[in-house]
Design a protein around this nucleic acid. Structure first.
Lengths: 229, 229
DNA sequence: ACCTGAACACCGTTCAAGT
DNA sequence: ACCTGAACACCGTTCAAGT
């Protein structure tokens, strides 16, 4: 096999960039478990071992995928502007983080991969540098800004690993489950039935992730603002 | 090979419990990557396939390992007592979560495994039920308690995935790194140098995880308390 | 310089066979 | 009922060989 799929049709040369973009779309479609070096090669119409001329190993592929995603986030940010004019820091941070979240929603595998990386890439560092700029520009002390980054944690990048399974007990089953567990989990069941009573649309296990994300984000940002006074 | 290691020494029969405890100690010692069905079997002086008489598959091993860890957390809690007397809810929640954190520090692999599970086990549900009891007992509305659980997220179980590598640039290298990146990461470097100036012990990349965890936890709990008034 | 085929040292898991 | 050995269908990666 030569690097042509049909006579007269020269296939684009392999490159690190092509490998990474193929890896991202493979994970987007089939989840991170679908990403194997062999399948990635097949997608690029190449032998698995050819990949190793452009990336050192699979870990470097994962590193690169994070950069692609964080690059998407950074690309959506217009620099300068209202970022440095003091009082607006909270809105600016909020806006940027919610924008990051929108990007991550398109790449459900990204949170897990980001958390599995042991070192921060230059691209990720640049994102955090920019976010830090918003905080310092808003008048937060270096110390408070530093605490803020830790408190935001992964939320700074737009995600928070949900421990509750969104699809756990959706539908009509949930009410029966509520009764089954009422004696063993009285507080949880009590809380959820009361919420369901107030809002009949809201059944067990079905939480509005966007609303919860914003609630937690605002809780943190409001807390920081208070400490900044 | 029969189930005896030496003549007269009958080996303990295999059981799901023994499998799970062996899995936990294997991961404690060698990290989660060291946990393979084959190695786990070797540790138990048994063939790999014998494990499948006690667990359905590796996923069930991971599920069980989470239960072992959360069981450790729950075991350290004395039920009843000061948990339900109103005003003390914040201290009670804080205390319980920090205790959970101490357990998780002994099982560094646990956060990753917990987040990889798609459904919550009865043991985990029981932990959250108990935590919910503290919130409701403290007078929080069902709605606010629900928001609180989401806002705490994995912190409710005592961990927060740190995005910054604790050992990234420790030691004397960090100062040189600071200078190298000063132009590309002005805000981050500015923040860190200012912190390092105030506290010479604190070098780049070396953060007090315990202090940062408590800062974020208190930020959230204080915010909830304010919303509860 | 880039790509390939065969091979190595692993995985999780199935299956038929043993006791 | 519990355990085993061989086998299957995968992995990531190395290496020597091709062009």
């Amino acid at each position: 096999m030569v690097a042509q799929s049909r006579p007269g049709t020269t296939r684009a040369a392999l490159s690190k960039d092509r490998v990474l973009r193929a890896a991202v779309s493979l994970a987007d479609e089939g989840g991170i478990a679908a990403l194997t070096m062999r399948r990635l090669a097949r997608e690029l119409e190449v032998e698995a071992m050819s990949l190793y001329h452009h990336v050192a190993d699979k870990d470097q592929v994962l590193d690169g995928m994070v950069d692609v995603v964080v690059g998407e986030i950074t690309a959506g940010v217009r620099d300068g502007g209202a970022s440095s004019d003091g009082a607006g820091w909270k809105a600016a941070v909020r806006h940027r983080i919610l924008a990051a979240r929108q990007v991550l929603l398109r790449h459900p595998w990204a949170p897990g991969v980001i958390e599995s990386r042991t070192t921060m890439s230059p691209t990720v560092l640049r994102y955090f540098d920019s976010l830090t700029g918003l905080l310092l520009g808003g008048g937060l002390s270096a110390d408070l800004a530093h605490h803020a980054l830790h408190a935001l944690g992964s939320r700074a990048l737009g995600f928070s690993q949900e421990l509750f399974d969104p699809a756990a007990g959706a539908g009509d089953e949930s009410e029966r489950m509520l009764e089954d567990y009422a004696d063993r989990l009285p507080n949880l069941v009590g809380m959820l039935t009361e919420i369901a009573h107030d809002d009949p649309d809201n059944t067990l296990g079905w939480c509005d992730d966007q609303a919860e994300f914003e609630f937690a984000l605002d809780l943190i940002l409001d807390g920081l603002e208070r400490l900044n006074s």
